[in-house]
């Protein structure tokens, strides 16, 4: 097992930096804190198992995200029929009403993201939370770039319709408090 400790601080820092982003992605995709923990653990264990497949260390982040996406796919395959990836019917998340009771914009936004179909919230999370390019998202999720763009359009349109007014209200409240 030589070699484990003799690594550049830069690479260590890059790997360490991935644990929390992976958790945020997993949380936004599966909508369950405990399951997100499990998925991240499984993804990192698979990464250990398959490290030789990563030819380019620069691709570490997108490689881990792709493994995470496959872990989620496998989970849904195991526990229930695969959630529709990209249908108009909203997914079963926390209702916006319940979230808005907390009067917190973050909770409301998460509730609305959770209502998106799985394929749309995967794309939104990868683009908005982690800043991946459309091409990278296509590689991670194994879908054409056109699909990435169309899912993103539908997701953003749905979020815009549900959140823009709410965001404006929140801003007005903040202004009135000041």
């Amino acid at each position: 097992m030589r070699g484990i400790f003799g690594l550049s601080a830069q690479l260590r820092a890059r790997v360490e930096a991935q644990r929390e982003p992976l958790y945020r992605l997993a949380h936004s995709w599966c909508r369950d804190a405990g399951l997100a923990d499990d998925l991240v653990q499984e993804a990192l264990l698979r990464a250990l198992d398959r490290a030789a497949q990563l030819d380019d260390p620069q691709r570490l982040k997108s490689w881990l995200c792709a493994i995470l996406a496959n872990c989620l796919k496998d989970h849904f395959r195991r526990v229930r029929p695969l959630e529709p990836l990209d249908e108009d019917m909203p997914a079963q998340g926390e209702t916006p009403e319940a979230a808005s009771a907390s009067s917190q914009l973050a909770a409301r936004v998460r509730a609305e993201v959770e209502r998106l179909p799985l394929g749309q919230r995967q794309v939104v999370a990868l683009v908005d939370l982690e800043g991946f390019s459309y091409a990278e998202v296509g590689q991670i999720l194994e879908v054409p770039i056109g699909t990435v763009m169309s899912r993103l359009c539908r997701a953003r349109e749905a979020l815009r319709a549900r959140l823009i007014d709410f965001a404006a209200e929140q801003n007005d409240k903040v202004r009135s408090i000041r």
């Binding site: 097992m1 030589r2 070699g3 484990i4 400790f5 003799g6 690594l7 690479l11 260590r12 790997v15 360490e16 644990r19 990192l44 990464a47 250990l48 198992d49 398959r50 490290a51 030789a52 990563l54 260390p57 570490l60």
Partner: peptide, 20 residues
């Protein structure tokens, strides 16, 4: 957490390590 960093980084560095 730090140990994970060392180990994963070790795997990813491809030096002196084999696949599991």
């Amino acid at each position: 957490g730090m140990a994970l960093v060392f180990v994963l980084a070790g795997w990813l560095a491809h030096d002196a390590l084999e696949r599991p």
